[in-house]
Amino acid sequence: MSLWKRRLPLICTIVFGIMGFILQLVPAFKSFLDIQNQWMTILFGFAIVIGVASLTKYHFKKIRQKPEERIFSYITFSSLIVMAVATLFGMKAETGIFNALYKNLFDYVYVPLDATIFSLLAFYITSAAFRAFKASSWLSTLLLFAGGIVMLGRVAFGPLMVFGELTQWIMSVPTVAAMRGIKIGIGLGMMATSIKIILGIERSFLGGE
């Protein structure tokens, strides 16, 4: 077992996992909890560096191996560098070329791109609803009716208010019951996985095995 790739990360996971657990549970260690939080911030900083390094490595490899797709990698690189420089020098500045660049890139490139991607959802949902929302079995018919009532209930007024009341019931009774079941299941699964990781039983996060 290699020390740097497996043994050391495993020891760190076990030590810090158990330590984190104890720090949360024992009030006497509250001051250590603050130190741990400050360390976390520093570690997250390193994670960003690793992320950028990994992205750079991936795209350099892509440029070399897939010449027909290299244009996308060039766009990624140029976006990364321009936005990083503009943000570093322009975000906190009140005037100047970098501030203008940062403001314009954020307001007129990033915001519309992000909003456009999300707004496409409305069109996909419409098309999917038309083609896939079929009353083919009693379960799908139930889903269809519940969906229809909630859609009407969310925009209900006047004579449609009966759908509004039905929607409130659907959202606060059957939805809550189903979501609680799902969430309790997820919670138990997370607890079991966390314990397995802290005790070194689950090692897939180290890669291999």
């Binding site: 929302f133 083919s136 859609m151 009407l152 969310r154 925009v155």
Partner: peptide, 21 residues
């Protein structure tokens, strides 16, 4: 706008299901 969109989707679902039926 949401009212228009919801009613439109409901009409589409209705028509789609009538067509399949």
């Amino acid at each position: 706008s949401q009212f228009g969109a919801h009613i439109y989707v409901i009409i589409l679902i209705l028509f789609g299901n009538l067509g399949y039926y």
